[in-house]
Structures are given as C-alpha cells and as structure tokens.
Write a protein that binds this DNA or RNA. Structure first.
Lengths: 228, 228, 228, 228
DNA sequence: CATGAATGAGGGTTCATTCAT
DNA sequence: AATGAATGAACCCTCATTCAT
C-alpha cells in the first residue's frame, strides 16, 4: 500500500503519477516497467518516488487496485435497465462489461490481464481485503447461483467451469475489439451504445452461444432459447 | 533465425544450449531471461553466443520453433488407435494432447503460453516459414471441417470460435494438472495412461461437455449425447 | 552539540529519540546508521531532526556523551564497600565496571567501542567540554597515582601503558561475556552479583594476573631468563 | 573468491585494481567503501568489475587474503638471525612484525584491524583453507608451546590470554608508530633497522615488560634487568 | 517550532551487446 | 570459429540534507 505521503499529494500530481505508471506497466508488464522511466515522465525526483511507495511492487499493487476500482465503477454505470436478470443474461452482461472495459481502458485491461496470467490459479485479492473481486471467484459464485436456480446443469464441475469462464473472460475482450475495429472508437466515446449496435450484438450472440449452448449442433435447443 | 554457425555445432552442444535456453525462458519469460545466465549455464563464451544468434530475440524465436516441433511430434506419437475420429473426438484428443504436452514438457508449455499471451492475435509463425502451426490456425481448420461434416453448427463464427478454443486450449492444461496433482507424475512417466484413467477422463468429460454442449441445462440433449 | 531546541523538548520525547539513535548506532556503526530510520522509528519529522541537530555527526557526538555519562553513573553506583582500595583493587574494579557496562548496556558499549576504534589515539572529549572522561586518560591518571603510591614500577612508560590498558579494557568485556555466556543474564538482571560469583571471579583473577604480574612464570624464572 | 577472469588480467592491471581497492577499504572500511569510486580510480568500467568479482564482499575477501599473504611474506623476510628463539623472544618478534607491518603497509594494517574488530571472536580463516593465520589462533599455539616449555605459568587461561594478546597485538602498532613518529619513515624505508635503534628498542622493552612481567612491582627482577 | 515533500547523487548490481585476439 | 574482456546504460533503491509551509 502506498505510503500516506502519496495520498497527501495534490490530486493532479497523484493522478499524473498514476497515469504515467499505468502507461509504463501496460506497455512493459511488471518486470519490464522502469521506475526511472516513470519518475522521468512524471517529472518527479527518484527519491520522491520512494517517499510515496515502498517499492516497485507497492506501486504495482496500487495500480492493480485502481484497475479493480475502475472496473467496479464501470460495472455500476452499466447496470442494465432491468435489475432482474436471468443467469445467462448476467453472464452476457459480464462479458459485455469486460469488452467495454477493454475498449474504454485498454491499458488497465492489459495490466489486469498480465496480472491474471502471472499466476492464474491464485486469487488476486489479499485475504482480509475488501470483497473478493477476482473474476474466477465471481464466476464460481455465478455458477453456484445458476445451479440453484436450475439454469445450469448440476453435473457441471464448478471449479473447472469457473476457471474456464475466467480464461475466456480475460482473453476475449482483445479479440472482440480487433473484430469490431471500426466500431471501437465510436463505442468507446459513447456515440454508439454497445448494447444496441446490431452488428456488435451479433458477435456477442455468437460468442454467448458458444459459451451457453456449446458448439455442438442442437438446432432445436438453440431455436427455443433464441425465440424466448 | 540462428546463424549457420549454430547449425555447424555438434548436436550435443547445440542441444545443450537449447536446453539451457529453454530453462531460462520458461523460468523468466522473454524479458526476464538473461543471456549471461544462459551462456554461463551452457558453458560457452559470451562472444560465441553472438556468433550463433543475431540477438536475444533470435534465440527466442528459435526456441519457439522447437516448441512447435516438439508438440507436433508428440501429436504424431499420440495418434489414436482409431484413425477415424469424429469431430468432437478430435477436439477432445487435441485438448488431451495439450495436457500431455504440459505434463511431459512443462517448460515448453510455459514458453508457448507466454508467447501466445504476448500477442494472442498474431500468428506465431513467421511469414515464409514452414506451414502455419499455430493453434488458432489449427482450430480454424478444425471448425471448417466440422461444419463441412455437419457436426458443427453453420452459424458459428469460425474466426471467433477458433480464438475461443485457442484461449481455453492454452490455459486449461495448467488447471487440469493442478486438479490431477496426485496423478500427474504417474501420467507423465507413462505408468498411467491418460486415455484410460477413469477419474481423469471424468474431468475431461466435464470439460468437453462445457465446450461441446455448453453449460445450459438441457437434460434430454445431454442424456442423448452421453448414451451415444 | 545539539541545538537548544532539542533540550526544549519534553523529556520523554528527547529520551525516545536518544533511545532510537542508540539502537541505530549500535546496530550499524556511525556510517551505516540511517537518519531516515531514526526519524521513522522515533516518529518525528525529518525536518524536526534537523532542527534538533545540525547534522548526523552532531547526533552521534551527543550519543557518545550519553555513553560516557551513563558509564560514569554506573561507576558511581558500583562504588565498592571499602572506599579504601589499593591500586590493583582499583584496576580490577575498573575492568569489572567495563564488563558490567557491557552486560547492562551492550548497545552503549558497542557504540563506545566503535568510537574508540575509529581513532584510538584521539581523546574522545571535545576540547573545552567537561572533564576528559576517556578511558586512556583515566588510565594515565591511575598509573601516575600508582607510581606515586609505589605500587607501580617507576620505569613504566605511563603513556604507553595507558594505551595498553585501554586497549584491553575496550575489548575484554566482549570476550568475558562470551565466556560467561550462561551467567550473563543472571548477572545483568542482578540475580547474581558479579563480585561474588566464584567462577566469574576465577576468570577475573586470571585476567588480572595477566595484567598485573604478566604471563611469565615466577620471579626467579624471570631472573634466569633475563639474565641469560 | 574472484572469478578467474580477474586472474587472467595483466599483472599491472590486476595490481592497479588491488591497489585502488586497498586505498578505498583502508580509508572507508568495508561499509563505506564505494565500488563506483574504485572503478573510477582504476579506470575500468563498472561492468568489468563484476566480471572480476562476484560482488563487493568478494573483492573485500580478496583484499583480506592479500593482507594475510603480505604479512606472511614479511614474516619470512624478518626471520631473525638466530633461528632458535625462546618463548618471549618469539613474542617480542611477533609484536615487532606487527609494528613493521603497520609501518610498511599502514593501509593493509588498517584493513586487517577493521576486519579483526568486525567480529573479534571469529576465526578469520575459512575452514579448509590454508593454514589458520589468524592472530588469536597463533597466540593460542604460542601459549600452549610456552607452557610446555615451562616458560609460561600453567595456571594461565590459554583461551583468554590468547584473546588478550591478540587485542594488544592488533592495536599497539598504531600507537607505537605515533610514538616513533620521527623515526617511522626512516624505519619504513630501511635506513634505520628497527631491531637496532636503541630508542625504539627501549619502547619495545617497556611494552614487553608490561606483557611479560606485568606492571606489578618486582624491584629485584627489574633492577637486575635494567642494570644490564 | 513542526512538518514532510522534494531532492538528486550515490549505493551495489545486471544487462545485452561488441570487438580485438 | 571461438573466445572472454570490455562496455556503460540501466536496474531498483537509500542517502543526508533542504526548505516552503
């Protein structure tokens, strides 16, 4: 955790440092990121840096928490009109959030992904810290709920399925954006709403079908589901 | 591509260098790997290294090609008893190969995964080099074939599905091995055959069901599938 | 000399700062001691430090004077029952005090030793400051008195002998404590009186004999040897 | 131990580096010595340094071994005319060597003293390395021999006496040189032989008497001796 | 008088790469 | 073809000290 001196800084300075750090970590991952570069770009003295943070890892953890906070706030902003959401609606919405996050904050998304891949089996949040926000954990909860609501098959190995979903969740954003290339800017700046652009929704439908119903050909099932 | 001086080396020396490089890249990723460490462990002169490879990246690319070669050879060795395999049998077999690869060559698997994540959208093989062997490409072929054989729904977005499968394919090995912890050694050294261990196959079944039929509850479908 | 602002501080705060500084100097010597560590542990502001002391050396000198004061007070407390003490009784008592000091205030002893070794020929006390309290000076006085009392041979080079005694005096404490290992705690907390523990006194006797009578065997032997 | 690359260097370069390091360690002790200063003064690149030595401590140990080697060689050169030397003759000669060492190689002597004081109870030489050369060990041997030859009183606690002698031995050189100030240069460059300068020998006599016979007044003995 | 942010030189160490032999 | 010494920029981090508030 950054030292309190960091939080005593003026907001503008603090945010400058954070922005510079985000650039650096996004571009070079943890290992490749350079404190020297960061302080140079932020226009602060080397010594000052170490009065704000105990070390490089401390800054990194701070940035990671910003990533989570930012994502959570985005989730709040994206709360769907209908608060009653069925199981798969919720799943689609989560993926949608992931894509929006990647779209609006590509650097933060990159950092998050790096962190996930650093050790994908570990829970990112420290024990005792606020709500567990790690995706794998959330998916585990989601699956448990889904089984209780009879939306998800009881034979599903929850632990594995959660890992499976998390893997897709952490990677698919990048892909979808590449596919939506021309639309990406429009969506990111809000001039197009991701939830209502038909072509984008087509892509989503297709992905969700993969996840929901699998790729096996079961026409009757699919039809039922989509005609609901 | 390594200089020709490298290929003039005795096989044993060449393989030593490669083995050391594999250790290093697996343990520290590209960025963290150290040429100094590699030459020290391989017992060659610093100068010699730069007579074999143009630079660090050159060596890395070479190791990457070894990874692919090794995987392909493993695939050949694992040709299933029945050469006629249906679409999903093939898919299960690919995942099985991925797990075996992770099990038998964890370092190569780690390197492969790192490379995939470095830029998951790029084709790993250099243009002009041998056939594209990247997983995404293979999955694209697989899906195309599957649709032609009427095993896969024609509405599936092949490009996205290939990326989707590749993501799972690259990550799931690590997870499955963690789950199979106690069995891992036995399988790796051949005293247990991954294709016949019932508990392991259960895990696989569960995963394949996620991939094949999705997680939606459609009991009648599933029953049909399993009674096949 | 600390600035007067330091002496305006509350006693508790002043003593806290001193205690922290003693820890630091004892553990790391002058050079290795860190102002940053000291202010952190003392819970004072960096700036405040430089309002109390002109610089690091200033603090160090202050601590040194504390060491001397503390030792002098211990000397007073240890005044032996019989105020009439012969020359060698006095010497033994001084060594005893040195050991007790090492035992009861190991950190102060460490600091004192460091300072002595930094330049053993210099008089520790600043010119103009209170009485010279340095051990070498005290030994010089002791020797002068001893000669006057006819206890010490007049041919002794007082200056050199004082240096000789000071050397032993500054180092022997550590050694004796190592030898008395199991007794050390008991003596330090007062449950064993160093002046009455027979085994400890044996060690002392042996040392004092070295110092008093030398290591040569018996006078007549000496004669033979020297008359050769 | 320095890397072999160091020993492949030209003698002149190697000795330059050693000389510079000796200057630095003598002037600043281990902790205060700066690798940056050393490489700057030696005119080599920072990186080169770390190709010669594994780290700062490695260089320091190397310098320490030079100190010992140098001292041993000096001992050989100073072999006294009569190879048959009695116990106390040997002791006097050891002290004489220590003084000569301090005189001829004041920097090495400073380094040795620092090392001794860093932890005076430890044996400097690594187990398994060549002969134990540490002074305390040599004194222990000396005392054991002395007792066997009936020159030293059997009641002497050998362990403590060895520590006692080592303390004096390590400190007294500095003092004697300060006393001999005007003679020092003449002795160091050989124009005056330390073994035959009467005033210097007086000082030695006085010291040796302290050590040998103690400071106790034994008029008859001393009288005889001094009237020789 | 207290504060604590700011400083930048310096600490030891590792890096990928070059080049004369 | 092989060597391995040389390089110096870059790494993360700590230092004693200053100064505006």
């Amino acid at each position: 955790m950054p030292k309190k001196t960091f939080f005593n800084l003026s907001v503008s300075k603090r945010e400058l440092i954070e922005a510079v750090a985000i650039d650096e970590f996004a571009a070079n991952s943890y290992r490749g990121a350079s404190i020297s570069q960061i302080v140079a770009k932020a226009g602060i003295a080397k010594g000052s840096f170490y009065q704000y943070f105990v070390d490089k890892r401390d800054l990194y953890n701070h940035i990671l928490s910003i990533v989570q906070t930012c994502k959570i706030e985005m989730v709040k902003d994206m709360t769907p009109p209908s608060s009653v959401m069925d199981t798969f609606g919720y799943l689609r919405w989560m993926i949608q959030v992931a894509v929006m996050f990647e779209l609006k904050h590509p650097k933060l998304a990159k950092i998050e992904q790096d962190a996930f891949l650093e050790n994908p089996l570990a829970n990112e949040s420290e024990p005792g810290e606020q709500e567990a926000t790690d995706a794998t954990v959330r998916f585990r909860d989601f699956l448990t709920q889904g089984i209780m609501h009879d939306d998800i098959a009881p034979w599903v190995d929850i632990d594995m399925a959660a890992f499976f979903l998390a893997s897709v969740y952490h990677q698919i954003g990048q892909y979808l954006i590449a596919r939506m290339a021309d639309k990406a800017n429009a969506i990111a700046n809000g001039s197009v709403d991701i939830a209502f652009d038909p072509l984008t929704q087509d892509l989503f439908d297709n992905l969700m079908d993969l996840v929901e119903a699998g790729i096996a050909r079961e026409p009757q099932i699919r039809k039922d589901y989509y005609s609901k």
